[in-house]
């Protein structure tokens, strides 16, 4: 059991080029910036990783903005108003 586990972790650390390229091309398919391009024109792994970082930062910003927006909306909803009742009913 312990033998198998150690083998597994060592195989994960020794990643082959093929595995690396597989993982990076999976990421590529998620990126709006380069997803639309044809499969035939290849992109460098470095470019994919750069775009991945940019995309995660963009999504983080969006979540930040939406959080602020939601907190404003929650504030604007009065405790006794019908909107508050709607929010409460959403919880049920």
């Amino acid at each position: 059991m312990s033998n198998r586990r150690s083998r597994q972790s060592s195989s994960a650390s020794r990643i082959s080029d093929d595995q690396m390229i597989d993982l990076v091309s999976k990421l590529r398919q998620l990126l709006p910036e380069i997803r639309e391009r044809r499969r035939s024109d290849k992109v460098s792994a470095s470019k994919v990783l750069q775009e991945t970082c940019n995309y995660i930062r963009k999504l983080h910003r969006e979540v930040d903005n939406l959080s602020d927006r939601l907190s404003q909306l929650l504030d604007s909803v009065d405790e006794d108003s019908p909107e508050a009742a709607v929010i409460r009913s959403l919880l049920m």
């Binding site: 995660i56 999504l59 909306l73």
Partner: peptide
């Protein structure tokens, strides 16, 4: 390690996308 980071990022991005969709529709609703 590198493979773990790439795998996790692949999952995380899609979770974030879903989060943005859900929060967006909640903002619209409210």
């Amino acid at each position: 390690s590198v493979p773990v980071i790439l795998e996790e990022a692949t999952d995380y991005i899609q979770a974030l996308e879903m989060q943005v969709r859900a929060m967006n529709s909640l903002v619209e609703l409210l």
